Computed example of a mutant assay.
Amino acid sequence: MGDGSTMALAAAAKWFIPAWFVGAGINMAVGVLKAGYSVAEELPIFLFVFAVPALVAGLLWWKFGR
């Protein structure tokens, strides 16, 4: 089932999730530190910004990582 391209896609998705978490965290930090939003205001945005792409990557990892 898994040729080289699907395994590469699964590996990329696996590495994307923690990298995206860091990127979304930096986005949240900029919102709090530079734009003046509170953590409580930024947290729902962080969760959405992180969760949607991470969910897609997780599904790709699950589907092609076997």
Rank of each mutant, 00 (worst) to 15 (best):
W62V: 02
L60Y: 07
G2R: 11
M28V: 09
F50L: 07
F16V: 00
L60P: 03
I45F: 04
G23M: 12
N27V: 14
A11Y: 11
A57D: 04
F16Q: 00
F16G: 00
G31M: 08
L33Y: 08
W61H: 12
W61E: 14
D3Q: 13
L59S: 03
A24G: 05
A19S: 13
M1W: 10
G25A: 14
E41S: 11
F50T: 00
A24W: 07
F50R: 00
V32T: 05
A19N: 05
A12K: 02
G31P: 08
L59D: 02
L47S: 00
A8L: 15
V52F: 11
M28T: 07
A10E: 10
W15S: 00
F48W: 02
A54I: 08
Y37H: 07
W20S: 07
L33R: 09
F64K: 06
L9Q: 04
V52A: 11
A10W: 10
G31K: 03
G2K: 11
F21T: 12
L59A: 11
M7K: 14
G31N: 10
E41W: 08
L9T: 12
Y37N: 04
A51G: 15
A12C: 05
L9F: 09
G31W: 06
A11E: 12
L47G: 08
A40G: 04
M1Y: 10
S5C: 07
W62F: 12
A13H: 05
L47Q: 00
S5M: 15
W62S: 01
E41T: 11
W20T: 04
A51W: 07
W20G: 02
N27E: 13
I45H: 04
L60R: 01
M28C: 06
I26G: 10
W20Q: 11
F48N: 00
G65A: 05
A51K: 02
W20C: 05
W61S: 06
E41V: 07
V49M: 05
A8N: 14
I45S: 02
V22E: 04
A51H: 02
F46G: 01
L60M: 14
G58L: 07
G58N: 03
R66P: 14
V30F: 08
A13L: 06
R66L: 11
K34P: 01
P18K: 05
V39S: 00
A51S: 15
A8E: 15
M7L: 15
D3E: 15
M7H: 10
K34Q: 06
E42G: 10
I26C: 12
L47P: 00
K14R: 12
P53V: 03
I17M: 15
V30W: 08
N27L: 15
G23V: 10
A35K: 15
S5Y: 13
A10D: 08
P18C: 07
D3A: 13
V32H: 01
A24D: 09
K14I: 11
N27R: 13
A57E: 04
N27Q: 13
N27T: 13
P44I: 04
F64Q: 03
M28H: 02
I45C: 02
A8K: 14
K63F: 10
W61P: 02
P53Y: 02
A57V: 06
M7Y: 12
A29T: 12
V39W: 09
W15V: 00
E42A: 14
G4C: 03
G23D: 08
E42W: 09
A57N: 05
G25D: 02
A24Q: 09
V49K: 02
